[in-house]
């Protein structure tokens, strides 16, 4: 009881441990797997990423030269990054921000 009483009094003068989200952005670690991004021009639309994706979040169409990911279905595992032959996939350190509408990230070559 006394330990917590001491802590409670000390906490009054300490800066708070929580942040004012969403006005203050969340800090993310170095090389964190935040959101999937594509370095477009390198992509050859081979479709390996789509096959490796365990969450079936990536759609690739070779004929239309179209690459598309659903960031809300993506589980940030990085399986697609591992298999990409052109190394054009990668992760941003920032997390996908809260949004009012779901929309896919698309790339057309």
């Amino acid at each position: 009881m006394l330990t917590m009483l001491k802590n409670a009094i000390l906490n009054l003068v300490k800066p708070s441990a929580t942040i004012n989200y969403p006005f203050t952005p969340i800090p993310s670690a170095k090389e964190a797997r935040g959101a999937l991004k594509i370095d477009g021009p390198l992509c050859i639309f081979c479709g390996l990423c789509s096959k490796a994706c365990p969450a079936q979040a990536i759609q690739v169409s070779r004929a239309d030269k179209h690459w598309e990911v659903d960031p809300y279905q993506c589980v940030n595992c990085g399986a697609c990054v591992d298999v990409c032959p052109k190394k054009c996939l990668g992760f941003e350190e920032k997390y996908t921000a809260a949004a009012q509408k779901k929309s896919n990230v698309e790339f057309n070559g």
Binding site: A29, A32, V75, C77
Partner: peptide
Amino acid sequence: LEYISGNRVNYA
């Protein structure tokens, strides 16, 4: 854990 693995929860 995030620093080591890249994710906070499901570390992959």
